[in-house]
């Protein structure tokens, strides 16, 4: 019989055994429910009771829930993984794992999946809250599915960011700090760059540059690095009746077909996740195969100096 990954079994067992898991889940849901209620209280009086009131409440609820859930996923998942490998190093159990027959891949994969399992639990937990928004109308199944895919993809990417720092550093505090730092840098840095770039280009760039196909691709690419921008743009595209998978950008010169921001975001995120995962596996390897070769080249360098 094929055995489950030992690391996965152990981590799930201990993660679910402690009170921390339930505590985290409770806090997460309380925040979500609290924000939803506040929003509902704030807008229900405002909107009044015209024909579209229900639809607008539904939309507002949906976007609020999705946004809060996304923020939480962005902050929680890197923390879940950043303690994983560094935590083994801190507990001094890492050597024992490496000296066993576990492969670096098994170690890294087990850590990732056990953290993702928990993140998936968090994501699944918002489905009932989202269906509340569904009841009011104004939100289609497409939006909901895209939101869930976006959340999952974000969880995967941000979990691998935490995992990478965890494999690189020796203390879980350090790894968590760097992981959160990376997340904040991404979430704040990309909008900042976009604002700066548009300020500069808006005043000085010639319009044929702005209309060129490669510039459109580049700007979409940068925007698709950011979960909130990518998913937000998709949402507005959908509410304008656009196609969920691609978009036609009309410029004065040509029409450029670009994938929907969420498609681009999903593809890029998975790509980066794979790269970070590969880097983590490499870092988790103590005596690397081909170490002989590296050593020899190092010796050559030493001899030359």
């Amino acid at each position: 019989m094929l055995e489950l990954n030992p690391i996965l079994v152990k981590d799930l067992r201990s993660r679910m055994r402690g009170a921390r898991a339930y505590f985290l889940l409770t806090i997460y849901l309380l925040i979500l429910a609290g924000v939803t209620l506040l929003l509902y209280a704030a807008i229900s009086g405002d909107i009044g009771s015209d024909l579209n009131a229900g639809r607008r409440i539904g939309q507002a609820l949906f976007f609020t829930i999705a946004t809060v859930a996304l923020i939480e996923v962005c902050l929680i998942t890197p923390v879940l993984t950043s303690g994983s490998i560094a935590g083994e190093k801190e507990r001094q159990t890492y050597d024992l794992l490496v000296a066993s027959l576990l492969t670096p891949w098994q170690i890294v994969w087990g850590k990732l999946v056990s953290a993702l399992a928990f993140a998936l639990l968090l994501i699944t937990a918002i489905v009932p809250v989202m269906s509340l928004a569904f009841l009011f109308g104004g939100v289609g199944l497409t939006e909901v599915l895209i939101a869930i895919v976006g959340l999952i993809v974000t969880a995967v990417l941000y979990a691998t960011i935490g995992l990478f720092w965890s494999a690189l550093l020796n203390s879980s505090l350090g790894a968590t700090s760097f992981a959160i730092g990376t997340v904040i840098a991404l979430l704040l840095g990309i909008p900042f760059l976009i604002v700066i770039a548009s300020l500069i280009l808006g005043s000085s760039a010639p319009s044929d540059l702005l209309d060129s196909a490669w510039f459109i691709y580049l700007s979409r690419f940068v925007a698709a690095l950011h979960p909130f921008i990518a998913l937000g743009a998709t949402a507005s595209q959908l509410s304008g009746g656009g196609n969920p998978f691609f978009e036609v950008v009309r410029t004065s010169a040509t029409n450029v077909v670009v994938p929907s921001p969420w498609v681009l975001y999903t593809a890029l995120s998975l790509l980066f996740s794979a790269a970070l995962l590969a880097a983590s596996v490499r870092l988790a390897q103590p005596v690397q195969p081909g170490a002989d070769r590296q050593k020899r080249s190092r010796k050559v360098v030493e001899a030359e100096s």
């Binding site: 201990s14 402690g18 001094q92």
Partner: peptide
């Protein structure tokens, strides 16, 4: 078989689970 000069412990783990985990790790 290696026994380092420190003892790595996991919280929330019983003695038999500790051995079980490493047994799994050795397939």
């Amino acid at each position: 078989g290696f026994m380092p000069d420190f003892f790595g412990v996991y919280d929330n783990m019983k003695s038999w689970e500790y051995l079980d985990f490493f047994g799994r790790s050795y397939g």
